[in-house]
Write a protein that binds this DNA or RNA. Structure first.
Lengths: 344, 344
DNA sequence: CTGAAAGCGCTTACAG
DNA sequence: CTGAAAGCGCTTACAG
């Protein structure tokens, strides 16, 4: 059955399409009587405006795009949830694409969203991405875009992030505060800014406390699907390499949980022999034994904040105001649990 | 800067919009020379068709909608990943909405998608949903719709599911095969069809093996965010209620992992004293100790299959063919690990 | 091989 | 208070 149009309503009431349109939108220059008549018939016929026509006229689709490195990931799926919730509240729908941590996909998806003429774009970069032309193209086209979590610092747009360096500093400082002297770090792969920043925070905390930095205490893991195993492997290797480590700051909870499982297996007592701090506050971290001290990374709030900023910029653009780029840094928090010693 | 239109290209070349449009789409009745000219200028000007106008003309948006109970969930996020991957391959974008297991949200979201005039809809029902009018309305409007995983059997449309009853039967049969005689079941809440079917599969396996069904061996958990704790609680309660249980079939891996953690804590040996089979094959299940025997629930394949079927129906509708509803049942598989005894 | 014209369904400036 | 008309940017049946 064919959808009902304004024309159908106009025909049935013997009035013009113009008046029907205005009546439905409560224009002040339509008589109350006509409005009532139109609205009643619209309800009866279950009239829904044709979104395609409205989009073409208004040049906006009330749809935004999201490009994310991976969906199946606790932190990112929380971000998605936050974005969708906030978007829905403002009457926007969200198209989601996954780059799979690949630059070529990310670029292609950005193109798809631009061609679809979404009203705005939210993006967290692939580990792969080192060239930013595709991002600058979006900005040059005056399309509102917000970067979050995995960002390119040099691209001129709004960003929502956590202070990875400070959070890592806090994590390391906590280990120092409870008395650790030889502190290892399991870091992420070399490229993404996050793992660099977390490493820098770790190193700065050591420096500020006059603890010598020892590169042999830093273990790298790629943090892909194998992170749990990488945690186990690094823990095993650490025990072979060093016998004096009393604390580890680990880049991601899943890796930390792998490490804990290996230490448990080998009879290393946590936190008595080695204290461990993770990063992200995954829901399993409060559940495992011993529960994991970690940095809470607020995914849901990040998602909300990302959409809110995008919405603000869409409004500014519509009103021809100057778009006001923001760098929003969300607070993180150290959650102390049983994998680190209590007090000193 | 204003986007380039067909009119712009036509003006610059001194030809008509019609010819430009046809040239870009490689109509056979345009000269090779004109085509070359048009295409070159289109590339130079970086022309992109206005999707809004194309949508209005063609009455399709190459966009589909997905309504899912929860995003932050291993199984569902895998389904999403599968859907997006398959959609992208066919040139479709996916709008995602989350019902949060609430009927009112689900209904509202379905409306949003219909008003947006997406080309098709994929939906997995909220636990809440008992009235199906909103679903039948979609079908009455001739909008292709696929239900998956959490479906309403009585709604007349294509469905992609696993055979929950058979999978649960297999899980229970496995426990019986390795010698278990008193088999408990931790089931999901009473409403969703899945947990009913899994319960029925459990009961049928008992019957077929002449093992008396004992209602006191069935424990319910709501399976929301607290599932891990519910697993612990049910395990604790089970030990108080019964001292002869030698096997448990558990509705969801996370609950099973909670139960294992409780049994570990209380010194109950798994699988020597109690064998455990879970359901879903969550990635943590192969990692914990002891690793969990479980039913593999193929989320990624389900996502792919859901979009493929939707695509097929969209094509059938476009060609005015009869839409051919399918009920697709994906195979599940018992993955044996260390939480159940080897052989008898 | 090319183009004028109609139309998708809406919105809104303008005239009466 | 109402409506004729233009236009958003495309596609396509039709004429020449």
């Amino acid at each position: 059955m064919k959808p009902v149009t304004l024309q159908d309503i106009a025909d049935q009431l013997g009035i013009s399409v113009t008046t029907v349109s205005k009546a439905l939108k409560d224009y002040p220059d339509v008589s109350a009587k006509t409005k009532a008549l139109v609205k009643e018939l619209a309800t009866t016929l279950n009239y829904k405006p044709n979104a395609f026509a409205v989009n073409l006229r208004t040049k906006e689709s009330k749809t935004v795009g999201l490009i994310i490195p991976v969906i199946v990931h606790h932190f990112f799926s929380n971000v998605i949830k936050g974005i969708i919730a906030e978007a829905e509240a403002k009457g926007y729908l969200v198209i989601i694409l996954q780059s799979n941590e690949r630059y070529d996909m990310e670029k292609k998806h950005l193109d798809l969203l631009m061609n679809q003429r979404v009203d705005g774009i939210m993006i967290s970069l692939a580990n792969d991405t080192v060239d930013f032309k595709h991002l600058n193209d979006v900005i040059a086209a005056d399309k509102p875009m917000i970067m979050f979590d995995k960002i390119a610092k040099t691209v001129n747009c709004s960003k929502v992030i956590i202070d990875d360096r400070q959070a890592a500093y806090d994590a390391t400082q906590h280990l120092i505060d409870i008395g650790c002297q030889r502190i290892a770090h399991f870091r992420g792969s070399l490229l993404p800014q996050n793992s660099i920043d977390r490493f820098l925070g770790y190193r700065k905390a050591l420096r500020d406390n006059d603890i010598p930095y020892d590169a042999s205490l830093v273990y790298i893991c790629e943090c892909d699907d194998l992170s749990f195993e990488e945690g186990q492997n690094n823990a095993r290797q650490l025990l072979l390499d060093h016998n004096d480590v009393d604390g580890i700051f680990i880049n991601t909870d899943l890796v930390a949980i792998g490490a804990i499982s290996e230490f448990n297996k080998q009879g290393i007592k946590i936190p008595e022999q080695i204290s461990i701090v993770g990063f992200s506050n995954w829901f399993m971290s409060s559940i495992i034994s011993p529960s994991l001290t970690t940095i809470d990374q607020p995914g849901l709030e990040m998602g909300r904040s990302v959409f809110k900023q995008l919405y603000k910029e869409i409004q500014q653009l519509k009103r021809d105001e100057k778009v006001d780029y923001q760098q929003i840094v969300l607070p993180t928090q150290l959650i102390q649990r049983d994998s680190t010693l209590k007090v000193k």
